[in-house]
Design a protein around this nucleic acid. Sequence first.
DNA 1: ATCGCCTAATAGGCGAT
DNA 2: ATCGCCTAATAGGCGAT
Lengths: 289, 289
Amino acid sequence: MSYNQNKQYLEDNPEIQEKIELYGLNLLNEVISDNEEEIRADYNEANFLHPFWMNYPPLDRGKMPKGDQIPWIEVGEKAVGSKLTRLVSQREDITVREIGLPTGPDERYLLTSPTIYSLTNGFTDSIMMFVDIKSVGPRDSDYDLVLSPNQVSGNGDWAQLEGGIQNNQQTIQGPRSSQIFLPTIPPLYILSDGTIAPVVHLFIKPIYAMRSLTKGDTGQSLYKIKLASVPNGLGLFCNPGYAFDSAYKFLFRPGKDDRTKSLLQKRVRVDLRVLDKIGPRVMTIDMDK
Amino acid sequence: MSYNQNKQYLEDNPEIQEKIELYGLNLLNEVISDNEEEIRADYNEANFLHPFWMNYPPLDRGKMPKGDQIPWIEVGEKAVGSKLTRLVSQREDITVREIGLPTGPDERYLLTSPTIYSLTNGFTDSIMMFVDIKSVGPRDSDYDLVLSPNQVSGNGDWAQLEGGIQNNQQTIQGPRSSQIFLPTIPPLYILSDGTIAPVVHLFIKPIYAMRSLTKGDTGQSLYKIKLASVPNGLGLFCNPGYAFDSAYKFLFRPGKDDRTKSLLQKRVRVDLRVLDKIGPRVMTIDMDK
DNA sequence: ATCGCCTAATAGGCGAT
DNA sequence: ATCGCCTAATAGGCGAT
């Protein structure tokens, strides 16, 4: 049970976890800056290619779609999300491994680097990168993340050897409403070769403009990218326990699911305005041409 | 409308399209062979990590699940699919770009290489790789692919400049039943910089064993990987028109969707036993330890 | 061997308050 | 500003015939 020992160490030394979370955040920020041109070009290429998909677009969905918007989810997942994973893997001192897991976010990989070794004072040279792409257009909120249980880690207790890790349910109290949220991800993994891999949760939020609304133009083009680092389960629920700190009230708010969704599977909202108060965990990058 | 000119060229020279399809197939095969160890290790790591997800597994789905199987979709998509994309991008003479598109398969990217330039006699140096991961366990067929409309290209007519590309609906006649299938992907793209990118459709089929069934063991481990190259829309429906050739009867069979699915959105089955007759388009790689 | 019955998980637009 | 109403698209296990 080297798991419990290492979890305890991370719990007792929250500045270590914070360092590697900011390392991941800054890494994505750097990679975006270094490749801004390519990201914008490939994202906006979807508009140029309109004749190739216009007769078979992803169909309107949800409640009362206005009809002038095209679901743009996959453009961001590929031209930003997959691309950044490749670009990260090409960095000089970084090694990437796609470790098998039956659930998790869009992009997930073990990232190994001597930089992590020195940031953690030799505790580990690896982190489990959990990166999800969260696109929005001009009609949805650009200041929150809607997260599924499989995208958030919890306190990660592992009491019985045969029992596996377990997370506590959290009551999410918003200004008007409340719900339960049950994160399903452990705060760290111990791999078969002994690698200690704390989980780092990053979110990439491509924000697109609907040019029909602003410029009398057409297409949905990349406007901004927001980056966010959400603390892992130990930081959120153990030490320092941001989720329970009144300084960060409404960090979590109820998500987008309706009452037909099973209580324990509901998504939660993370408010970037509040997350930003915890530290330099939110970045906005202008991607407009 | 350089599109029509280039489409015509490819249609008139089906051996060119075939060459790049086999190039893509062999590329994936090589990359798997060269990295067999890593792929197997990362895939099977999901079993070692059982304690980390056992309390929050992906839930059983579909009709009458037996209860001893765990949805293993994402293990294959990441430890095989995403991994192969990264490994391809690391090849010496290959460049990868994640071109934005609102629909398509799991992995899609523009692949540029001098090898393509010479294979096509200078027609183009690039192909649009459309790669989908299709996992199965011991209780599903290992000899067919179930393909969504967004994973298959069609004849790709582009008549009116403003009209965009259009594909013909196909009637799929199986031994017992029939359905309509409407592919939604064009056989080639012309990018904003003039790049001609014929679409190459490849399928990676990780086959896992349920060790509880065979060895009195536990876990779902990688057993084989099948690779398949499905001809693009020009080859299938124009020239030579494999879909209509009685030598390849039942290449397509009805898919897995039920009658509630809109007629034009139904998936189709591609029979690997028949596909194999078209040429060396199916490969099986033993991945058992 | 054929084929379709059947449901989890993801995602974010947009209205109601 | 809050929050939940609401639906497309993907996927493959497994039974019925």
